[in-house]
Nucleic acid binder design. Structure first.
Lengths: 204, 204
DNA sequence: GTCTATAGGCAGATAGAC
DNA sequence: GTCTATCTGCCTATAGAC
């Protein structure tokens, strides 16, 4: 399903997305995208008036795609721990050909971003934390996850841990390096036992 | 100590470092630095022939400063857990006025960096992992840290966890957000108890 | 929708005077 | 060491023909 020829706007977004994920928002140009697609820069400006608008469209599509992926995970995985692993797999899937998570990359470029893009980046992290916190609470209620303290704080640790794992593993071009860290985060922080910040009794 | 007037080269490095940490390597220009110091771009080129050389000098100084800081930590903190906390504090100190860790930021810009800078970034992460792994092993031997599995993998999780925490917390301009995650990483991953990846018996 | 042509600005960098 | 002046090239963006 959904394998139509893909119109120009979509092709532009595809190429731009890959370039931003690999090189950052200040590391690619309209010329890069135009050359790769064999069209003129003016054609890009027809579809996206300026780089700011292109960036917004990029974020909008990425966030929507990610939201759909989370709904899929909720539908497919019954267990909270499995949901966390599926969540980490979403990141692992992105971590190909030198790509960062789009929002992780834009978080690095944050100081130079136009305001609408900034808001999208923050919203992305917020949404992810909310989803993760719900999964964590759900797992704790069901007994498949054990942790002490705030689910929201664990959620933040997972988001930033996965973003950081991509950031640091990318220079090594090493998927296994990312995966090992992701496993430690998920299995160590949220499953089986986790040490509370101070003086908590250990689970099990 | 060491509060001499600071020569031009040092002032250039100071300004450039802050700009790179805040805006990324592709988000600042010679003109930015020159304007802020009230000198000409040509003067910058006298001290650092090109942006690549400036970047290398930036990395060199940053790595040396970080290495000294680790030696200080080793000298001041007797306990492995305290060393980890002091290590996290090094990151927290950097996390001011919208700054990222220099190497975290350059990891994001990695695809666009000249080769010598790339090597410096990787070396920085390698050195940090080696130091952390030694602290972790030392703590395990002394009984102040408890974890199962490879110290090197835990070390990688800490490095990327702290880098990711900076990356994600920065858009919120929230130091507490960073600190909470750092505490969870250090106290949860390396102290007291930590769950092994699969089916391990829990410590304590 | 896509093109060519071009504007206008800023990037990194150099020459040569002081 | 630092300056002014300048170069060349790329950047984002627009105008107007097809």
């Amino acid at each position: 399903m959904s394998k139509e020829p893909a119109d120009t706007a979509t092709k532009i977004l595809d190429v731009a997305e890959r370039l931003v994920q690999a090189r950052g928002f200040n590391g690619f140009s309209y010329a890069d995208v135009a050359d790769e697609l064999g069209i003129s820069k003016a054609a890009l400006h027809y579809h996206f008036p300026g780089k700011a608008e292109l960036g917004e469209a990029l974020m909008e599509r990425y966030a929507a795609r990610f939201a759909r992926a989370l709904i899929d995970v909720d539908a497919r995985e019954p267990d909270a721990h499995a949901k966390l692993q599926a969540y980490a797999r979403l990141y692992a899937d992105v971590f190909q050909d030198e790509r960062m998570c789009l929002c992780g990359m834009l978080a690095a470029d944050y100081a130079t971003l136009p305001d609408p893009m900034r808001r999208s980046v923050v919203r992305f992290f917020d949404d992810n934390e909310v989803w993760l916190a719900e999964v964590l609470d759900e797992g704790r209620r069901a007994g498949t996850l054990r942790f002490t303290g705030s689910a929201r704080e664990i959620a933040r640790t997972i988001v930033s841990g996965l973003e950081g794992a991509m950031l640091v593993a990318r220079p090594y071009g090493d998927t296994a390096r990312f995966q090992t860290i992701a496993d430690l985060l998920i299995d160590g922080l949220a499953a089986e036992t986790t040490a509370p910040a101070r003086r908590g009794r250990s689970a099990r």
